[in-house]
Amino acid sequence: MSDDAPPLLEVRDLVVRFDVVTPGGPWGRRRTLTAVDGVHVSVRRGETLGLVGESGCGKSTTGRAVLQLEKPSAGEVIFDGRPIHEWWVQRWGGWRWDHRLRDLRRRMQMIFQDPSASLDPRMTVEAILAEPLRNFALASGSERRGRVQRLLEIVGLDPRFIRRYPHQFSGGQRQRIGIARALALEPDLIVADEPTSGLDVSIQAQIVNLLGRLQQELGLTMMFIAHDLATVRHVSDRIAVMHLGRIVELAAADRIVTAPLHPYTQALVAAVPVPDPIRERARPRLVLAGEPPSPLDPPAGCPFHTRCPVREERCRRESPPLRTVAAGHEVACHLVD
């Protein structure tokens, strides 16, 4: 798995914090929510990195901070050798984008979770897909319609539908429009933020297959965010498992699924149903007890110890660092040698 070429994307100790004001006006308490707490990961050119974890673990925020849609509170994001997290400017009482970040949009794009929220309801499909082309003056008026129709064909939609509005499409078709929009600028990196979680199971497979095919045909580098391993394992080369803002395990996709080391990953793997009723019934169950801890009030020591089935005394005190246990396999757990 060694690769001498520098990675397309390097994320170093990324931290994203939000100020949360509890209700109560002047008496409300101002607290800090650490959504992403020191994520360290890199994505090589042409690779798909899966990012899994339960709701609220900070995986979407990680994706947005990587694309600088959210300003990182600390840490570094190096895209193609350039430290893009430094490209924010403070002006008029808020953080705003430098023009270099705007120019960078051509090279990194996002596929959003809910296509009915991420497509402007007042725009036709043609206007939606022409928007990125217009932003970067990539095609003149007459050329643009052709480009838009070509994009629709790439994602498997009828190019005659360009006059339609998002609400006239099904959920799966809308997500295809979202994918076409992300592809319009021919980016190097695509962050797909749970692109299938709002869809029917039968449609999920279609979208995952579409993404896998596009990834191969167009040589995309992708960060695929999802909350279930079953979706991610099909498209990913490597998988990073996130828990409470941190990566707890990172390895090749098949290793994560066949030989998980972290107890949290083991629980995630055990949660994937096997499509064979006899084996499914015989399979050992590993169900986590309790709620995930709140990122507003994270537990001391290992953030997973409150629910960990194999916790020890020192897990309550020390937080385990992410360390390499085998070639290309990193785990953050005291109990793994």
Binding site: L69, R105, Q109, L119, D120, E131, N135, F136, L185
Partner: peptide, 16 residues
């Protein structure tokens, strides 16, 4: 709303 975030991620300038 997410479509505004999406527009920003597409590089749409503020006045647009």
């Amino acid at each position: 709303r997410e479509f505004i975030l999406a527009a920003r991620s597409l590089g749409t300038p503020a006045h647009d």
